[in-house]
């Protein structure tokens, strides 16, 4: 099942299938370590807070609205 990252619940794991957005966003998200194929775990997903995911050995906070364009396959 493929869903936007914002719909991955706290504690769920997923693999990034696709990221879309403008160039700046793509290069920023890639340079922090999140790219297609990367496995992540949702650490916290609560309203009006940035998402908090665990990926590539660290915790990463991500803006909510931009994260809608990250599609993940729920594992």
């Amino acid at each position: 099942m493929v869903v936007p990252l914002t719909e991955l619940d706290t504690g769920e794991k997923g693999r990034i299938k696709d990221i879309s957005g403008e160039r700046r966003y793509l290069s920023r998200i890639t340079s922090i370590g999140l790219n297609v194929g990367c496995e992540i775990e949702m650490l916290q997903n609560v309203k009006s807070r940035p998402l908090l995911v665990f990926g590539r050995d660290t915790m990463i906070a991500l803006n909510r609205s931009e994260s809608k364009h990250i599609l993940v396959e729920v594992l």
């Binding site: 940035p50 906070a61 991500l62």
Partner: peptide, 10 residues
Amino acid sequence: RTGLIMELPP
């Protein structure tokens, strides 16, 4: 201005 993309280091 860009949305937050930040590491929370250990």
